[in-house]
Design a protein around this nucleic acid. Structure first.
Lengths: 139, 139
DNA sequence: GTAACTGCAAAATATTTGCATCCTT
DNA sequence: AAGGATGCAAATATTTTGCAGTTAC
């Protein structure tokens, strides 16, 4: 499956470049969400920090990755699932989990965000849920 | 009610200083959550930027304010309610709403975060929910 | 008077922008 | 060949730290 990264880029009408493939590979290999810094650590020797900023921005706009809000000024990113990428729409309604022990943030793809009733007059466009606690590996 | 800010500080065993009172007043007067930058805009002429960082940090530790996760690297803060402050525990289980039109982030104190079932092995300590959309003022 | 708080200076870190060059298509 | 992507340099902005002076209690 060495082509997977390339395919994602082609599907999103992006040119296939070394840095983009590398960053996608990092995401594909990761079992958790990554902050800019994490990616930099893994490939700053090969690619410029600015390129990483721009690449993440591009991926975000194309819906290849989604971002996960945080309270520590370290927005993290994770690959979107197939549906997301192919439709260009975010079906990103799963819960995110941040482990206080190992610090990893993961997508709980199987846990849907429950419905909420907003007060009259509010319109919902997007919803985000982040749970903190101890993950199953650290238990 | 000019004493309200002072009372909060005393309850939290913090010394009452001009900058702390001022920052609390800003929060008390605000109808939405504030980022560091917002506060700076309102009082950087009077108080040092560093003091603002440290004050927010202190308030956070004492449970006077809580922070609201974001995807834009602008963590916002809002006053905790009474129960929070007096017990020192966060009962901060309300939903936050960010308006895409006016950009304001508010606490929906009346909307509780619904329960979620985490996968086996995960323990929940804290939960955060942020909804994006259009608020009632911008509708 | 003492401990805590603040302001200033400076260091460290993070982010953005412009432009020349290189690579993909 | 043309447009887009990258690297580098530099400008900005943000956050942290140390320390000396000031203030609250």
């Amino acid at each position: 499956m060495k082509k997977q990264g390339e395919d994602i880029l082609k599907n999103s009408a992006l040119s296939v470049t070394a840095s983009r493939k590398r960053i996608l590979d990092i995401f594909l290999a990761a079992d958790n969400a990554l902050a800019h810094q994490d990616i930099e650590t893994k490939c700053a020797d090969q690619y410029d920090r600015v390129t990483i900023y721009r690449t993440l921005q591009t991926f975000l706009e194309k819906g290849i990755i989604h971002n996960i809000p945080s309270t520590d000024n370290m927005v993290r990113y994770a690959l979107c699932n197939e549906a997301c990428i192919t439709t260009g729409h975010h079906h990103d309604n799963h819960v995110h989990f941040r482990c206080d022990a190992c610090g990893k943030t993961v997508c709980l793809d199987d846990v849907n965000i429950p419905a909420v009733n907003l007060p009259r007059g509010y319109t919902m466009k997007e919803i985000n849920m982040v749970v903190n606690g101890i993950c199953k590996s650290c238990k």
